[in-house]
Design a protein around this nucleic acid. Sequence first.
DNA 1: CTCGTCTGTTGAACCGGTTTGAGGATCGGC
DNA 2: GCCGATCCTCAAACCGGTTCAACAGACGAG
Lengths: 347, 347
Amino acid sequence: MAPPHPGHPPTLADVAAGAGVSKGTASLALSGADGPSAATRARVADVAARLGYRANRPATLLARRRTHLLGVVMQVRSGYHAELVDHVQAAAEVAGYEMVLSPVTRTHDEERAVTTLLDGRCEALLLLGPELAVRRLEELAARRPVVAVGRRTSARAVDVVRSADDDGVALVVEHLAALGHRELALVGGGSGAIARDRRRGFERAGARTGTRGRLVAGGTTEEAGAAAVRSLLRTPGRADLPTALLAQTDLVALGVLDALADVGLAVPGDVSVTGYDDSPLARLRRVDLTSVDQGAQAQAVAAVTAAVERLDGGRTTRAEVVLGPRLVVRGSSGPPRSAAAGRPRGD
Amino acid sequence: MAPPHPGHPPTLADVAAGAGVSKGTASLALSGADGPSAATRARVADVAARLGYRANRPATLLARRRTHLLGVVMQVRSGYHAELVDHVQAAAEVAGYEMVLSPVTRTHDEERAVTTLLDGRCEALLLLGPELAVRRLEELAARRPVVAVGRRTSARAVDVVRSADDDGVALVVEHLAALGHRELALVGGGSGAIARDRRRGFERAGARTGTRGRLVAGGTTEEAGAAAVRSLLRTPGRADLPTALLAQTDLVALGVLDALADVGLAVPGDVSVTGYDDSPLARLRRVDLTSVDQGAQAQAVAAVTAAVERLDGGRTTRAEVVLGPRLVVRGSSGPPRSAAAGRPRGD
DNA sequence: CTCGTCTGTTGAACCGGTTTGAGGATCGGC
DNA sequence: GCCGATCCTCAAACCGGTTCAACAGACGAG
């Protein structure tokens, strides 16, 4: 059966006509709402299938009171965001929502990405690692639920889902201390909330485990990690160099690994190295980096839940969900030479 | 000025009322179409700005004859797709279109991704590395322009944008031959169009350069690459092992590198290794892999162009754009030992 | 002074759905 | 046989824009 308007897809009116009912009845029948009799329902469904009818999305969105759309702003190049999106998609579906993606690219900044979602009538905004100003976040939150994922913010009315960065670093410190390390260094400064948390976790865990920790300035790139190592090596008194380096991110850890290789230091023989994020990179056998998993799935679920609670649950108070990170031990961390003296390892 | 309907965003009617004109005039004024006088135009723009008016996207899409939407189906986890998307976004904007993203995730397969885009009234479909059946592709292409990016397809009416896989592999073979390699192996079989092309390029370039090439079965994962190396090493007559291994993808190359490291073979000292895709992985210093850049930006531009030609240019014939790949030489390839020793080639 | 043009603006139709109040059948109860 | 309840269905209003035929008013020409 060809559609009544050649070239154009069939509309609800076509289905209704084909089934001998009104548009209204056809709509009810297709949406599964009660009202139409079983016979009518079947007839409409049948005609719709034969015609290959599909509801016009914009029309549906316009007509419905609610859109049930969750807008997600992601950094398209970020592997971590990709992972989150994957799980958000699934979680949204379970909650009866649809996810709409708005990528941040070179030509499309975060502000534009958000605008696109708002124009599209998304009911809530999930921002992955947002970098918008606090003021802007608050403006947005005044209009609809906003959830910041993976990054702390002081913006009122903005829900936050993140993992406990201090605990994450503490896990690493404890792991290294248990291996016998006494001299640690945290690579990666920065003034952001994340960096601050990690530093605090580092210091507290250091005190708890009786290890000595120092901080080395570093950024968020591979090169920054390499530079940090070089600066460490320039420091006089090479004898008491740290035996373990904790990098802020897996990428930074890669830079650290490279710089160590350049000067002939073995990992983990001479120095143990750890990353953060447990990105696909860390899992590569060639990298094999001890890292911290922030739990993408749990974060995704929590973010969707937070949005849905505001939309359907009537919550109006700010929520901050802090998830426990998980240590993933791989080959880049091991006992220091001093501790290994009695227990040599072969390679 | 507060919106006239508290809780709801202002509509065009509100703007029109505020400016003392009809909805029709307000629409014309805001869209920049000619008709309204300069004074009216300014007044409407002013009121719209004061009210914070933004057009309701679904309504606009519904009302307009054309949506100017380009739907893109991507593998959300693929770094290469992310790169493509980035450039497609930019190219679409230049062409006066908007990109809509539909990710393929664990719970959302390619078919669903496509359906979402069709329901959303996208005017054309750009499928990145599509794996839909040829029949399905043809069905889709019968409804609207479809462009397959990065993967050949025999589907009629489907435009294809890809890079010349045979030429890409040939570039690598020539590079290695110039370095002095005489015994090569291509890791990665498979029956797909891509694998076939690469194999052909390998064989032809082998003949041209006088190198001896063999094929080693392999998949598309890191593990497959490692397995291929192990099988090679099991082969008797280790003396005439290949001095260079060409992996199908960068990921496979990583597996190859790992397996070689496991048995203590140096790269590129004992064996040269190359990848394909020039992914971010290959660029990591720790990996530093000679690879082939498929030109994401050029592919993106070509894909958007193909779609726009069909939509606005009236093209109805099938287009297949084959772009020239580019060799990126890094540290994983170098002269073979034998070249230094001047060992004659034998068989 | 009349007519034709041109410029701006209007009002209504339309896009394709959803929602709802009203009304027609059908049926059981009395 | 009449009445009210129950069950379906319908027609119309509505969502918020875009588009266009029709028209009012200003203006210049004849």
